[in-house]
Simulated scan of single mutants.
Amino acid sequence: MNITIYHNPECGTSRNTLALIRNTGVEPEVIEYLKQPPSLAILTKLISDAGLAVREAIRQKGTPYTELGLDAPGLTDAQLLDAMLAHPILINRPFVVTPNGTRLCRPSELVLDILPLPQKGPFTKEDGEVVINSEGRRVTTSD
């Protein structure tokens, strides 16, 4: 089963997403993108395959986004991508690639839409939110 997560172990959303993948019984390929940034071609493909605009894939919080002037509306996608490659902390996370598609998994439970295998048991996010019940089914706000 080929599943890849572009992961930041310091990020709770990324840790929750990784745990949801592992809750299917699959050990994904984990790429710590801050240590091993993607190439321009891979980053462009991740963003495109996830159905996002380049600007939607940029992380603003806790990054040099404003200091680098990336909030300027006239910047091109190429300029934004160059900044993301020069400062990988600007790449929003986590991106997950499975045989069923690619997603920027914010919130982490978005990964459930592309996982090929079902959850094997209950799952509670780090903040205490129950995502998967004891029957292995997704909990929704209407439950």
Results as ranks from 00 to 15, higher is better:
residue 117 L to N: 10
residue 73 P to Y: 15
residue 112 L to N: 01
residue 113 D to V: 00
residue 62 G to M: 13
residue 106 R to P: 08
residue 55 R to S: 08
residue 114 I to E: 14
residue 58 I to D: 01
residue 13 T to Q: 14
residue 59 R to S: 04
residue 65 Y to E: 00
residue 75 L to D: 11
residue 22 R to L: 07
residue 87 H to Y: 10
residue 11 C to Y: 10
residue 28 P to R: 07
residue 111 V to T: 02
residue 97 V to T: 14
residue 81 L to A: 01
residue 12 G to Y: 09
residue 63 T to F: 11
residue 10 E to L: 12
residue 84 M to W: 02
residue 86 A to F: 01
residue 64 P to T: 00
residue 67 E to F: 02
residue 64 P to M: 02
residue 107 P to W: 15
residue 74 G to E: 15
residue 55 R to Y: 09
residue 103 R to N: 09
residue 116 P to N: 04
residue 93 R to D: 00
residue 29 E to K: 07
residue 55 R to F: 08
residue 28 P to E: 15
residue 122 P to I: 09
residue 43 L to W: 07
residue 54 V to M: 12
residue 104 L to K: 03
residue 113 D to P: 07
residue 128 G to N: 09
residue 72 A to D: 13
residue 42 I to E: 13
residue 121 G to V: 09
residue 72 A to F: 10
residue 59 R to E: 04
residue 60 Q to N: 05
residue 6 Y to L: 02
residue 33 Y to W: 08
residue 7 H to W: 05
residue 105 C to K: 07
residue 92 N to F: 05
residue 117 L to D: 14
residue 13 T to G: 13
residue 29 E to R: 08
residue 115 L to C: 01
residue 71 D to G: 11
residue 104 L to D: 01
residue 96 V to P: 08
residue 95 F to V: 01
residue 37 P to S: 05
residue 81 L to R: 02
residue 69 G to R: 12
residue 28 P to Q: 10
residue 71 D to P: 04
residue 126 E to H: 14
residue 86 A to T: 04
residue 29 E to T: 13
residue 109 E to F: 09
residue 54 V to F: 13
residue 107 P to E: 10
residue 50 A to T: 06
residue 33 Y to H: 10
residue 43 L to P: 01
residue 93 R to Y: 04
residue 35 K to Q: 13
residue 125 K to G: 08
residue 24 T to E: 09
residue 96 V to H: 11
residue 58 I to A: 09
residue 60 Q to C: 04
residue 78 A to E: 15
residue 125 K to E: 12
residue 32 E to L: 12
residue 100 N to R: 12
residue 38 P to S: 00
residue 21 I to Q: 10
residue 19 A to T: 05
residue 73 P to S: 15
residue 107 P to R: 15
residue 90 L to G: 01
residue 63 T to H: 07
residue 88 P to H: 07
residue 65 Y to K: 02
residue 111 V to R: 02
residue 10 E to P: 00
residue 15 R to H: 07
residue 82 D to Y: 12
residue 72 A to R: 15
residue 87 H to G: 00
residue 61 K to G: 03
residue 23 N to W: 12
residue 22 R to D: 06
residue 104 L to V: 04
residue 46 L to W: 14
residue 105 C to F: 05
residue 27 E to A: 01
residue 30 V to D: 01
residue 69 G to T: 10
residue 104 L to T: 03
residue 115 L to K: 02
residue 70 L to E: 08
residue 43 L to V: 04
residue 8 N to Q: 11
residue 19 A to V: 06
residue 40 L to Y: 09
residue 22 R to N: 07
residue 43 L to R: 02
residue 48 S to H: 15
residue 86 A to M: 01
residue 34 L to A: 02
residue 98 T to S: 14
residue 76 T to C: 03
residue 107 P to M: 11
residue 46 L to F: 11
residue 117 L to M: 13
residue 86 A to R: 00
residue 86 A to Y: 04
residue 127 D to H: 07
residue 79 Q to A: 03
residue 70 L to V: 07
residue 107 P to T: 08
residue 11 C to G: 01
residue 51 G to H: 14
